[in-house]
């Protein structure tokens, strides 16, 4: 088996193992399913190019997803225009715990900055420590802390009904 064939096989294994998790991660970053799929394909294409030289493909792809999601021009290009209407949003097919809460959470996440969303997703969805989050985002530890604090505070302002998720005071959310 040649080097190229080994890389192709390794990449295929990685995609099979990580695709679903990466898509969910991207979805939480963007709030849009199609945008998430586009991001995932872009990140996978990038890691494919450097496959032999990437030590941790999963981390690399996640970092790419974060930076791409935070990319202003990309965000502006693909973000669908926000429309207000009386129609009820399409009901999702995932497991239903509290549909209203989920919708509220999704809408509130969409009002955060890309960096704040990335911090929240890494910290509370991926359950990463602050230092891991700082490494993945390529920023300082203090930035992660402040972004987390700001993100939670903004969620409280945007959606007070999420108080039971994010806590009522900044001190209460420290991990």
């Amino acid at each position: 088996m040649t080097t190229e064939e080994r890389a192709r096989a390794g990449f295929a294994d990685f995609v099979r193992a990580e695709n679903a998790a990466l898509t969910r991660f991207a979805y939480l970053l963007t709030g849009d399913r199609h945008h998430a799929e586009d991001l995932v394909q872009t990140a996978l294409a990038r890691v494919a190019v450097h496959w032999e030289r990437v030590d941790d493909p999963a981390a690399y792809v996640r970092r790419t997803l974060c930076t791409q999601a935070a990319s202003w021009w990309r965000w502006r290009r693909v973000r669908p225009p926000e429309q207000l209407g009386g129609a009820v949003p399409e009901r999702t097919t995932g497991p239903v715990e509290d549909p209203d809460l989920r919708l509220t959470l999704r809408a509130a996440l969409g009002r955060l900055t890309a960096r704040q969303r990335a911090v929240l997703v890494l910290r509370y969805y991926e359950d990463r420590s602050e230092s891991e989050t700082a490494v993945l985002l390529g920023c300082r530890l203090g930035t992660v802390k402040s972004q987390t604090r700001h993100a939670l505070a903004r969620l409280r302002v945007l959606a007070p009904e999420l108080a039971e998720l994010v806590g009522r005071a900044p001190e209460e959310v420290s991990r």
């Binding site: 695709n19 969910r24 959470l105 997703v121 969805y125 998720l165 994010v166």
Partner: peptide, 20 residues
């Protein structure tokens, strides 16, 4: 309460199928 945030995020993400 951060556990609940984690659960909510996971429920939110679970509705998305894997990328093709």
């Amino acid at each position: 309460m951060t556990t609940r945030l984690t659960q909510a995020l996971r429920h939110l993400a679970d509705e998305v199928p894997a990328t093709s």
